[in-house]
Design a protein around this nucleic acid. Structure first.
Length: 879
DNA sequence: ACGTTCACG
DNA sequence: ACGTACGTGAACGTT
């Protein structure tokens, strides 16, 4: 069996990965997507081919001979975007760390080196594989040299393979004749001009007939299409030049040692470190345990499992000014406790025997009275430990979130790396795999204790820098005055939950089922067959192919069947209306009727989780279930709110801010006209319409008001004429005119939005009134789409974020004041601009006053904050 | 695991 | 020429 060598066209694959993948960055903002993509495809090929040798070839940056030739002829090469340029050294560093041979040479392109190595290896009797994104390399294919070209179609990467036979089949010419083809048809991606007027078809015909451009030129008169003949006559020099450009030099004087290229262990310590630094988390799993470096912190973890020792430990902890705490627990059970008293003094106490979970939590409660408890997630701690105080806790998760709200999760190992001088420690996933704490506990995994210790260590050691950075960035106030108190407010809401009438929910679901079955029958009849209506793929085929509705593709995977598309395409098709109704009802059934029913707990209530570290703008999110997207716009869906009821002796009080975002905009922009508008008018959209369209307030038509309202929304979202045109079903030109008129009416708003974008570009982030930041790396992107997105985000985030800050402040004040006044009413829900309070009947007046005062008084703006408040026997009634 | 759709602000 | 409104989460089908 002959040996195998894999040759990779470095820049070409990196380039492909860069454009094929979204612009990944690690938490420091370093661009890493191309490197990641490169590694993925490389690993895939390595697993398939299992070569003995591996080499990656790179171009050097100086112009090569072949390009000089062309540059002299015309123009220059296209530059790479800086996001890609900065990844080239990173890529080489990674390959070096993996012990992979890389080659490059002044005056030669990667192509030339690949060609040279391919020929040389073939002569040695090896099987050669070249991985590249460049079809130019097909000229190198033989029976022993396979060219592999990755292709992305429909979001999936497939690889096309070419030996001589496949080249012949696909291009009707031999691999060396690929050069001749290119000489005629050119290649814009390689800056090969070719000759004008000759494309793929003609070029193939000519080369198939004559074999080479020289021969074709000799038989000029025989060239078939007249156009090609004349072009050849006139531009033969271009063809010759193109041929030179397209020819890969297979005899470059490259010094090369096969031994250096022999494939060894890629999973080295250095590679591990680098993957960690770049945050290629799912590559880390590939590394063997030996490659995982020794821990860079001094290991001093102690297991403490005797009562006397634990008592002593807590006494010692109480004398400390701070303790790092990792309570290993889920919602219901406590499995153990990690405590860090010093960086080098970390303990683990498994919860068993006398040292029960309850015992440990009681100890923690006491400790919390004496010292500051620093932990990754204080709200989780509050589920098990009563009566901690904001003054004596530090929430690292929230600190890390404020410092960078863009991350999808806040794990202790990331926080350790960022806020404890770049150290790397094993993650929970590395220690426990995908096991939950409960599973690891059952397995009596020793790693559970280690995990607890690392987490406690992090909670202890990362506090200082996290706190310092919050202060440096001006976010300390946001942390102490808004987020930290909110932990307690949300904890109370979660514990309280909201009462849901399970029986009625079930009955509602059954009513839906009846109609759903009717609709199914109707749809199958009209379609002439049974199929899965919930499958966009099958539905697309039925509608657009079988029923012949015209309209185009939209998505990568097929036809779009989204409601707005269907409505536009075939409003008169009765089946379309059935499908839309079917969709609506199945959504209500599965997500709400069934979904909510499944999460009602024994107390008859739903205890959603309110997450404080998810959104980029500072809003809260709600999960398991999401209570922030319960239907309201359509009556049928809105009925679900009837099953959300107050407990006996209570009513619901619901208060929502009136257009808080627009009011925030009025304040932040200082636009006098908008501020004035709010001072005089009941109906801001009507007044906007009157000012924008220059008609008296009382003569504004419904259409004008609707348009003005859409523009008001659009402004808040970071307006674009396209978005507005979609929303209003008008042309972009009309939309642009509306926007222009709007900005003429409220000039300071335009100034403000422009300022946000400029500020975002200059600083890399934008801020709310209270100092909360949102980084916007997209603003620096070379990609128009991404950059435009960044611009809209820069306009929207300060507004949405400030509104989020305000309602958080209001929530805290409402919560604290109800406690302080000894009321028994409870805050149960927040839906971005709305608070729902389960109010004791004799406290209605007091709570109304509190809501009114605290919500309106949460911030002093240039316009009043107004609220709408209602009372009811269900959420439906109270809204 | 990912994309599509759709519910909310 | 590109192909978008901002921010979420859940269910489902497809890979």
């Amino acid at each position: 069996m002959s040996e195998k060598i894999l040759l990779i066209d470095g820049h070409s694959i990196l380039n492909r990965a860069f454009y094929g993948l979204p612009d990944l960055t690690n938490s420091e903002g370093k661009h890493t997507g191309a490197v990641y993509g490169f590694l993925n495809i490389m690993f895939r090929i390595l697993e398939e081919e299992k070569p003995d040798y591996l080499t990656v070839a790179f171009d050097l940056h100086e112009p090569t001979f072949r390009h000089k030739l062309y540059d002299a002829y015309k123009g220059t090469r296209k530059g790479m975007p800086p996001e890609l340029v900065e990844q080239v050294p990173l890529m080489r560093e990674m390959l070096t760390a993996m012990g992979i041979k890389t080659v490059s040479m002044p005056g030669y392109e990667a192509d030339d080196l690949l060609g040279t190595l391919a020929r040389k290896s073939e002569q040695k009797g090896m099987e050669v594989t070249i991985l590249s994104g460049d079809r130019d390399l097909l000229q190198l294919a033989t029976d022993k040299v396979m060219i592999r070209l990755p292709k992305t179609s429909k979001g999936k990467t497939t690889i096309e393979n070419f030996h001589t036979a496949e080249v012949l089949e696909k291009y009707q010419v031999t691999p060396p004749q690929i050069i001749e083809l290119k000489a005629l048809m050119g290649d814009s991606s390689d800056n090969i001009p070719g000759i004008p007027g000759v494309g793929e078809k003609t070029a193939t015909k000519i080369i198939a007939q004559f074999g080479s451009i020289e021969n074709a030129h000799e038989h000029l008169e025989e060239i078939k299409p007249n156009k090609a003949k004349e072009s050849m006559r006139e531009h033969y020099d271009l063809a010759v030049l193109s041929k030179t450009l397209a020819t890969i030099n297979t005899e470059s004087p490259l010094e090369y040692s096969y031994e250096e290229a022999r494939l060894g262990n890629l999973y080295t310590q250095q590679a591990y470190e680098l993957c960690r630094r770049l945050e290629f988390k799912n590559l880390l799993g590939r590394f063997d345990a030996e490659a995982v470096p020794e821990n860079t912190i001094e290991q001093n973890f102690f297991v403490c499992s005797e009562l006397s020792g634990v008592e002593a430990l807590f006494e010692k902890a109480a004398r400390n000014s701070m303790a790092g705490i990792a309570l290993i627990a889920d919602k219901n059970n406590v499995y153990g406790l990690g405590i860090a008293l010093e960086k080098e003094e970390v303990y683990y106490i498994p919860a068993e025997g006398l040292l029960s979970g309850e015992y440990l939590c009681e100890k923690l409660r006491k400790l919390g009275e004496a010292t500051v408890i620093s932990a990754m997630d204080i709200k989780m701690l509050l589920k098990h430990v009563e009566s901690l105080e904001p003054e004596r806790v530090f929430d690292l998760g929230i600190g890390a979130y404020l410092l960078n709200p863009l991350k999808s999760s806040y794990t202790y190992e990331d926080i350790a790396r960022e806020y404890i001088g770049g150290i790397s420690i094993p993650s929970r996933e590395e220690l426990l795999g995908k096991d939950t704490y409960e599973k690891a506990w059952e397995k009596s995994s020793e790693n559970l204790g280690i995990c607890a210790c690392y987490q406690a260590f992090t909670a202890y050691a990362a506090r200082e820098k996290t706190e310092a950075e919050l202060k440096e960035t001006g976010m300390w106030q946001v942390y102490t005055d808004i987020e930290l108190p909110l932990v307690f407010t949300l904890d109370s809401m979660e514990k309280c939950g909201i009462c849901v009438k399970g029986e009625e929910l079930k009955a509602y679901g059954e009513r839906l089922s009846v109609r759903i079955r009717e609709l199914e029958k109707l749809i199958y009849e009209k379609a002439g067959e049974e199929f899965n209506i919930n499958s966009p793929k099958q539905l697309g085929v039925i509608l657009f192919e079988k029923m012949g509705i015209s309209g185009g593709r939209k998505t990568k995977t097929g036809y779009s069947t989204a409601a707005d598309i269907l409505e536009k395409l075939a409003p008169e098709q009765p089946v379309v209306n059935d499908i839309l109704e079917y969709r609506q009802l199945t959504k209500l059934k599965s997500t709400y009727a069934d979904g909510l029913g499944a999460v009602i707990e024994e107390d008859g209530r739903i205890h959603s989780t309110f997450n404080q570290t998810i959104t980029a703008t500072g809003r809260i999110s709600s999960t398991e279930p999401n209570l922030q997207n319960i239907p309201v716009r359509m009556e049928l869906g809105r009925l679900i709110r009837k099953v959300f009821v107050p407990e006996d002796g209570c009513v619901f009080l619901d208060a929502d801010y009136s257009q808080i975002e627009l009011r925030v905009l009025a304040h932040m922009s200082g636009d006098e006209k908008l501020i004035q508008a709010y001072r005089e008018a009941e109906d801001i959209h009507r007044l906007t319409a009157s000012q924008v369209f220059h008609v008296p307030y009382d003569e504004v038509t419904d259409l004008q008001r609707r348009n003005a309202k859409a523009v008001n929304f659009g402004i808040v979202y970071g307006i674009s004429s396209f978005g507005l045109s979609q929303d209003l079903s008008i042309t972009r030109k009309e939309a642009a005119e509306y926007i222009e008129k709007y900005f003429e009416t409220y000039p300071s708003i335009k100034v403000f939005l422009d300022r946000m974008v400029d500020e975002g570009k200059e600083k890399g982030y934008v801020s709310t009134m209270f100092g909360r930041r949102r980084p916007i790396p997209e603003l620096k992107s070379g990609n128009f789409m991404q950059r435009s997105f960044g611009e809209r985000v820069a306009m929207n985030s300060p507004i949405q974020g400030t509104a989020a800050d305000i309602i958080k402040i209001a929530m805290n004040r409402v919560y604290e004041r109800m406690l302080r006044e000894g009321l028994q009413s409870r805050l149960v829900l927040q839906v971005h601009d709305e608070l729902l309070i389960e109010t004791k009947k004799d406290e209605v007046e007091a709570v109304s006053r509190i809501l009114e005062e605290e919500m309106k008084g949460a911030a002093r703006l240039a316009v009043e904050l107004e609220i709408d408040m209602h009372q009811g026997e269900s959420w439906y009634e109270a809204k």
